[in-house]
Simulated scan of single mutants.
Amino acid sequence: MKRTKISAMLLTIAMIMSLAACGGNSGNSASSGAASSSAEVTPTAYSIAALKGPTAMGLVKLMQDAKTGESLSNQYTFSLAASADEVTPKLIQGELDMACVPANLAAVLYQKTEGQIETLAVNTLGVLYIVENGNAVQSMSDLRGMTIVAAGKGSTPEYALRYLLSENGVDPDKDVTIDWKSEHSECVAALASGEATVALLPQPFVTVAQNKLGDLRVALDLTEEWNKLDNGSSLITGVIVARKEVVDANPAAVKAFLQDYAASVDWVNGNVADAAQLIGSYDIVDAAVAEKALPNCNIVCITGSEMKQKLSGYLSVLFDQNSKSVGGALPEDDFYFGA
């Protein structure tokens, strides 16, 4: 891995630090596959990007600790982006060491870079919902004949929606009209203006929309709809990945990062009000919205063998539906760090 001047200085002067023990598994977080607290690690500087949404929300405690100079296993710098399109070129070109991206995109990048992307953890489970300004939608089959506004074409929202429609006997190309927007905020605007009555939205945008439209209701939880199929997989929204050369340069430091990340997730899930204030201060989403949305954001830090089991099952479902959604082939074992 190409060292910056900062990381070189750290490697020269920093003391060898013991890995901090991972925080307790409160909420939905998990820490399987992380390094033991007795291991030692040479601190490393990492540049990490997250998308404004649940993945960034789970990182806020770590972001704040890095900003205030708290004692951490490594040195971290963070950047936030509105979409994965802003992040992936920088990751591939080496400007970023790690990035939070949609789960299927991680597999696409693995294929595109010929195995040079490695998944470190699942950081967000299902956060997708069908919302309606009305009461017509009680099941996936009720969407037949309707127009659904949505964002996220080519990533988790599209593939999850198409899969669930198909499994419920609704042809996503013939039986419904999906009006794709470039951002989730556009979907909220369409609902608010009356342009649309049904939308596919993730948290925290569900809460944003409900704050604008008091009668807007959650018609369907796509995680529940996925679980009803009992297909041996879980609906996964996001993961955090790293460049393989970053991982290979210092695997112990990467494991230490995962412990820091898991501790941040545990804190966010266990301190919702305080976490919401931090989320607001980083302009990820308004603090009041964050406080309402956090319990439904399914923020986790699942690593190791459990990460591989959940993610490989999800990618297999997508592959069977549309191989292009995961880059044309399923990733090999080296895609899953620590599994």
Rank of each mutant, 00 (worst) to 15 (best):
residue 217 R to I: 13
residue 285 V to T: 12
residue 331 P to F: 15
residue 14 A to D: 10
residue 106 A to Q: 05
residue 150 A to R: 06
residue 130 I to D: 00
residue 104 N to V: 00
residue 120 L to D: 06
residue 190 A to W: 03
residue 317 V to M: 05
residue 20 A to H: 15
residue 237 T to Q: 10
residue 162 R to F: 12
residue 202 P to A: 02
residue 36 S to C: 15
residue 4 T to I: 05
residue 336 Y to W: 10
residue 43 P to T: 00
residue 140 M to H: 04
residue 21 A to H: 10
residue 10 L to N: 13
residue 117 I to V: 14
residue 259 Q to W: 05
residue 162 R to Q: 03
residue 133 N to D: 15
residue 177 T to P: 14
residue 25 N to Q: 14
residue 249 A to K: 15
residue 209 A to T: 00
residue 278 L to W: 04
residue 292 K to E: 13
residue 68 T to L: 08
residue 298 N to H: 07
residue 252 A to H: 09
residue 26 S to E: 13
residue 98 M to Q: 03
residue 93 Q to T: 12
residue 43 P to E: 05
residue 256 A to S: 08
residue 290 A to K: 06
residue 185 S to F: 03
residue 15 M to W: 01
residue 227 N to A: 08
residue 249 A to S: 15
residue 327 G to F: 07
residue 292 K to F: 07
residue 13 I to L: 15
residue 120 L to N: 07
residue 207 T to N: 00
residue 94 G to K: 13
residue 145 G to V: 03
residue 90 K to S: 14
residue 170 V to E: 07
residue 30 A to L: 09
residue 38 S to I: 10
residue 216 L to E: 01
residue 53 G to I: 11
residue 287 A to M: 11
residue 212 K to T: 13
residue 326 V to T: 04
residue 120 L to F: 13
residue 71 S to L: 13
residue 52 K to A: 01
residue 119 T to C: 15
residue 3 R to H: 10
residue 324 K to I: 10
residue 32 S to W: 01
residue 280 G to C: 08
residue 184 H to L: 04
residue 268 V to G: 07
residue 239 V to R: 02
residue 233 S to P: 01
residue 57 M to N: 08
residue 315 L to H: 11
residue 221 D to N: 13
residue 49 A to Y: 14
residue 132 E to K: 05
residue 23 G to P: 14
residue 223 T to R: 11
